[in-house]
Nucleic acid binder design. Sequence first.
DNA 1: GACGATTTGTCCGTATGTATA
DNA 2: GTATACATACGGACAAATCGT
Lengths: 235, 235
Amino acid sequence: MSKQRKLPLYVQIKNKLVNNIKEGVWQPGEAIPSESQLIEQYNVSRTTIRQAIQDLVQKDVLETRRGAPTRVKEEPQVDKGNPGIIHKEIGTNMEVKVLRFEKLKEHYYAKYQLDLEEDEEVYVLERLRIADSKPIAYQQLYLPIPIGEVVKGVASDVFDIFPVLGQHNIHHSNIQEMVSGSNATQYVADLLGIIPGEALTDIERTTVGIDDKPIEYSRTKYIPNAFMYRMEIGK
Amino acid sequence: MSKQRKLPLYVQIKNKLVNNIKEGVWQPGEAIPSESQLIEQYNVSRTTIRQAIQDLVQKDVLETRRGAPTRVKEEPQVDKGNPGIIHKEIGTNMEVKVLRFEKLKEHYYAKYQLDLEEDEEVYVLERLRIADSKPIAYQQLYLPIPIGEVVKGVASDVFDIFPVLGQHNIHHSNIQEMVSGSNATQYVADLLGIIPGEALTDIERTTVGIDDKPIEYSRTKYIPNAFMYRMEIGK
DNA sequence: GACGATTTGTCCGTATGTATA
DNA sequence: GTATACATACGGACAAATCGT
């Protein structure tokens, strides 16, 4: 710990603050001690405390408001959904219908995306996403076995599997998506009630967990005007 | 501009710095005056100068290194495609064809998106994006007058206007995009050589500059299988 | 390579403004 | 209205990295 001594004071303070949050001393949403209190506690200047706090505000760990106490951010920032991405399916009455849910031995590309070994199995889940009784998307999800087991019971109940995974402490840290166009095959067209050859908007997604292991590889084919994809980048 | 007086000093300084960059007084890669010089020039304390600079470092506008002069970033951030966004138009031989380029008095929604006053004019640029002699997209760009003047000369030569704007020291800090589906109108279908009613992938984009003023609002309608949109988020 | 001047980074203390509770 | 909190702004000091001579 002697190396700590070489770190700037404000970084040391920052680490202490983060530790208090990690250890649950200060819960999300809770106020942390005021600047004056921290000055006394750590025996440093206001500048130092403020620099530490400002850094953490920047990282979305803390939240400051003039006049009000500084608080720990509600969102644990790891799993804040999609930083700046919104998928919106247009409709009011949403359902999902499971077409298929089984283990697969052979599916090279999915296994490649999920970084699985040649002899490992993979779960495949095919669903129809339905809005107001009309199918709007055909979705294929490929899941590693442990993830699949979690999803198994709820595949037909939940529209989005991530909250469920979150409940099982499976969190993602990285999402990669590819949006492109394709033409409906006969099979998909029949499922979606459209004409073969009609254009679809495809979303191909690979999700990686906080342990850097893939969680999910999926392909979803949307009827274009039943779907909206919104994105914001930058600062 | 008396409202400026109510802004914190460091924000005023920040704006002045950004203006110098925008006006090309300080070119990308170049050093800006030292803190001591800025203190003299603006007659404020070091704290104030530093806060302004730190804010811009945070926004990737400036770059500081202990011991070395502070410089304007070479690539004012987002220009190169940002935290993992790739738009790919599928084809080898790319062209653009300008259909229309003129000032508009009336276009409420575009003005709203561009944060313009009721009586201000707006440039509208309509182009056809062509790959291998086949039209793949119909694009409408709405630009504030000063931006439009810059684009004016090159509208038919460049596929992407941002590098051009970059050369004129107009840089963006924020992009918001909406991807959705639509059906081709008769007008657009004729332009793209498709059948009316066929599905298109729409990209609606609002781009904001480093001075927080909107640069561009655009709508592009792509033939789905001529276009790919790839995105990565997370750490 | 060494050295001094310059520049940014860290840290202290203090004072005042302004929003919140 | 009062007290408390963070936000802004000033000033000074020394450390550490860089750069030109």
